[in-house]
Amino acid sequence: MKVWEYILRRLLLAVLVIFGVSVVTFFIARVVPSDPAALWVGPRPSPDQIAAARVKLGLDRPLYIQYFYYLGNLLRGDLGVSIKTHQPIVRDLRAYLPATLELVLVGMAMAVFIGIPLGVLSAARRNRFLDHFSRLVAVASVSIPTFWLGLLLQLIFFGQLHWLPISGRVSIGTALYRPIQTVTGFYLVDTLITRNWPAFRDALTHIILPAFTLATYAIGLTIRMTRSTMVEVLQEKYIVAARAAGLSERTILFRLALKNAIVPTLTVLALSFVYSLTGAILVEVIFSWPGLGSYVTSAIINVDFPVIIAVTLVVTVFYVLINLVLDLVQVVLDPRVVLK
């Protein structure tokens, strides 16, 4: 298969998948619930309200026509209206998305700076204490319930040590006396641009615990992946040659070997980035972080169905696009993958 043929096939598949995803969400929104109109009206509906909603939602029309209306709205960027707030969901998403993205990005940075070095050192000192320790961390981090880990960290760092704040994005004091001007919606960036140093410090201390909680899963995966690829690379002849030439261990590990072991790790990191977008749902509940996760969970409590469906759809499309980019980047970096 030629490279461009592969790329074309991959693009077509992405289009097909996004189309399929819209069908599945439509199905969940309109066909699965026993009465979508009752869900739309909210708790304790009156019969008149339900009848009105049925007409408004087009539920009196055939199913395939309903789907085309649904698809048409999506293509125009209309995700519907929240039952609870009566706001267009797109506007809500714009407010909540930066908070979640900031959390996920800081978490990913932690995964890079903790996971990769631990994986490299673990491979270099195979079957010694550090290796056993980091393999234990790797297994534990994929087995621990994140929401429980978050509570434990709160108990230790807030309840016992009083080092870090328990929840929220900033403290009330900052919100009142050094309010953050919203430019990008990322508080760490906004406070830097506006040189609001006390607020920057405050935002930084608030993000450490939730970001770390979110990052544990990615840290575990990164350790595992880095270790296994490094173990292979370290047996190659050029590493033996570098050792014989007397290069320092640090240069060998982090400059020569890591360069060839990094690609699978980066793939894992990109995948756990998207995974973290959903992991954030649980973490945000624990840390009262005002992002997508808090938005979805309050929607679950309020039976705000359009919100749940919209968030599912948006995050999934995000997921598909990142996977697509990842595959295309891999083809460019290493055209051999086309052969598989």
């Binding site: 998207v274 995974y275 959903t278 992991g279 749902i281 599912t312 999934t316």
Partner: peptide, 8 residues
């Protein structure tokens, strides 16, 4: 598989 499993 395109859906994030928890969200679906």
């Amino acid at each position: 598989l395109a859906f994030p499993s928890l969200l679906l």
